[in-house]
Nucleic acid binder design. Structure first.
Lengths: 130, 130
DNA sequence: GGTTGCCTTGACGTTGGTGTTAAGCCGTAG
DNA sequence: CTACGGCTTAACACCAACGTCAAGGCAACC
């Protein structure tokens, strides 16, 4: 499988695949003419990468998952290193969720305050839900 | 007030203040020697900027708040334009909170699954709280 | 005159994940 | 011969909010 085919099958671009390779995530052999030749298993690797990227992981965080897959495991997250990253990421997400919640509260307070100072005090307050 | 003094009083750097000016947020007069001369009110403007930045606003989003302050209002968020940005930002944060929550759920599911496949089934499950 | 410490503009570096040329090789088809 | 599509590497462009030199002017003090 050449790079264009893998890119299309994985829903991404050749440029992106080369970038992953450059960062040690995707592996490719070479044809006699220098073209990258991909193993069928790489499609799964690329899917794993894109899924984790979409979840907010960085490429460095993803490496353990790929190595886990490459080691023959059924899923990328069953290895100790992956689990460690998983725990760390969950903690990060939790932390970020907390911060965002605080920010949301502040913004709501400001909005309420701005609406209260409005010149039409027909309804005392209009607090939005959630 | 020169740039260094304002920077220190606002808890930031001269470079940052020049950057804000470049983006039309902070205003400065010029001394005969070319030095920026800041009005006392600018301290408040800079504080407003830094507060909003910390809440995840971009400089473009912040502009209405600064103009609102500059128009003589007691707070930057009482003007219609500011309120509009505020509403939009709240919606963005809500959306992001939703996405993050989903991601968190996925990560947790993966973690649980990884732990279940562990070779020591001493405790059936170990679901973390929150 | 020299040093120190402010200030000035200009411009490149950072972080991540690509998009987008540019210049060129490979192979096939007309 | 030429055109065309796919591949190669190299390298700049992007977004945001600055940090960090670089090279130089201005002001005060010794």
């Amino acid at each position: 499988m050449l790079i264009g085919e893998l890119a299309e099958r994985a829903g991404t671009s050749p440029r992106t695949l080369r970038y992953y390779e450059e960062h040690g995530l995707v592996r490719a052999g070479r044809d006699a003419n220098g073209y990258r030749q991909y193993d069928d298993g790489e499609l799964r690797v690329v899917h794993e990468i894109r899924t984790l990227l979409a979840s907010g992981f960085g490429l460095d965080d993803i490496r353990p998952f790929v190595e886990c897959l490459r080691a023959g495991n059924s899923a990328g997250h069953v290895c100790p290193d992956s689990v460690a990253v998983l725990r760390r990421k969950i903690a990060e997400v939790d932390d970020y969720l907390g911060q965002l919640t605080e920010v949301r509260q502040r913004l709501h307070d400001q909005l309420d305050q701005a609406l209260e100072n409005r010149s039409d005090p027909q309804e005392t307050r209009c607090r939005t839900r959630r």
